[in-house]
Computed example of a mutant assay.
Amino acid sequence: MKKKIILVISLVYGSLLFGQQKTFTNPLLPSGADPYSTYHNGYYYYTHTTGDKLMLWKTENLADLKNAESKLIWTPPAGTPYSKEIWAPEFHIIDGKWYVYFAADDGDNNNHRMYVLENTSKDPFGGKWELKGKVAAWPDRWAIDGNVFTYKNELYMIWSGWEGHTNSQQNIYIAKMKNPWTIDGKRVLIAEPTYAWEKQGDLQDEKNPPHVNVNEGPQYLEHNGNIFIVFSASGCWTDYYALGLLKFKGGDILDPASWTKHPEPVFSGSENNGVYAPGHNSFFKSPDGKEDWILYHANSNPGEGCGRKRSPRMQKIRWNADGTPNLGIPVPENERLAVPSEH
């Protein structure tokens, strides 16, 4: 009788443990804005904004991010143009080398620019991270949220920037790159806030002027030959923060006329689900390469703004009949989701 009881208990415990391993709930961490991951040799290398340094996490399962190995990659030297307000880092593998792109300033937001570090080691937790310098286009203006991608064997960068020297509007720009740390030529404007849902920024204080129109956090996305840029719109300090979509129609990728904007946001907050201001996302595939997932940050309550209450979350996305991404609705925090497929 004891053996039967032990067997039953073992089976129940094993079933529960198996279930815990195969499902998860959001958020992945208590805090972490601007989440980004890179999949390499069976591991996800994850990062998010910390503000004063660059951190990297390593895990086989992003759903188990809270137990991931982590390492301090880089701390900026004090008193430099890139020593403060380090935002939206992204780790990329280009030509067999690791690069991390990030925005930073000297403590004055007007001086925000993009920078890049290089590591020639195959293991980003090893080797040495060296500053390659500022990544700037012409004209050299305020710039954040750089994302790099390869199109027809050429490297490009997209980012959010100001037209001039004042904080009145954030646009999406694109430029070709000579190499991973040098932009080739002028920047090209491909999107600016035009719809009402991109112009919500009514918090009035010195750091966030009223009515700031925002397009930021651009992310390249390709599926079945279709190319998109998903971006964040409106002020992150509002509950209106949401994701918009640009579609590449073909032709010259540096031609503004080659891009069209979806008239409505493609991913917004859900009061019913208790998820507010979802934004600054990235994308990743499941370990078996069969599923597409969105990684994003959001708040659990209204009015929590751009602070440290933003937490990383993820959910599977699908594709519409016309080839556009269907990001769905942010899932509630108590909803159990299956982990990304492994086989």
Results as ranks from 00 to 15, higher is better:
S341E: 13
H262P: 07
I190M: 00
L56C: 03
P265S: 04
A257E: 12
N208D: 10
A338P: 11
W129R: 08
K4N: 15
K58C: 04
L221K: 00
Y46C: 06
G126E: 12
V212R: 11
D292C: 04
A33N: 14
V230H: 02
I172W: 00
S70D: 15
F91L: 09
V12P: 02
K122S: 15
S286A: 10
G96R: 07
D252P: 01
S286M: 11
I144F: 05
K247D: 00
S286F: 03
N109W: 14
K53E: 14
N67M: 10
P210W: 05
E60A: 14
P30H: 11
M157D: 02
F248S: 01
N326T: 04
L28M: 03
G146H: 07
F248L: 00
T23A: 13
G107F: 03
W259L: 02
K316I: 01
G235F: 04
G274I: 08
Y13V: 15
K128D: 14
E154H: 10
N171D: 14
W159C: 06
E222G: 00
L62T: 07
G328Q: 05
Y99P: 00
N147E: 12
R308C: 11
T49I: 05
M157E: 07
H343N: 15
G274P: 05
N119S: 03
L131S: 04
N179Q: 02
G235E: 09
N320Q: 12
P287S: 06
I229M: 02
I329F: 03
G126T: 12
K199A: 11
V100T: 12
L203M: 11
K3S: 15
N320H: 08
F125K: 03
D95T: 08
D252W: 06
I227Q: 01
K132C: 09
A103G: 13
L295A: 04
Y82L: 06
Y240L: 13
G303D: 07
Y43T: 07
E163I: 13
L245S: 01
I229E: 00
V214T: 06
A143C: 07
D34C: 02
S270F: 06
L29R: 08
K152R: 12
Q169H: 12
K247M: 05
G217M: 00
N26P: 05
D205M: 08
P256S: 01
H297Q: 06
I329D: 10
D34E: 03
H40W: 14
K53Q: 15
S282R: 00
Y173C: 04
T38L: 15
T25Y: 12
P330H: 01
T38Y: 13
C236I: 11
I172A: 08
Y195R: 08
H262T: 14
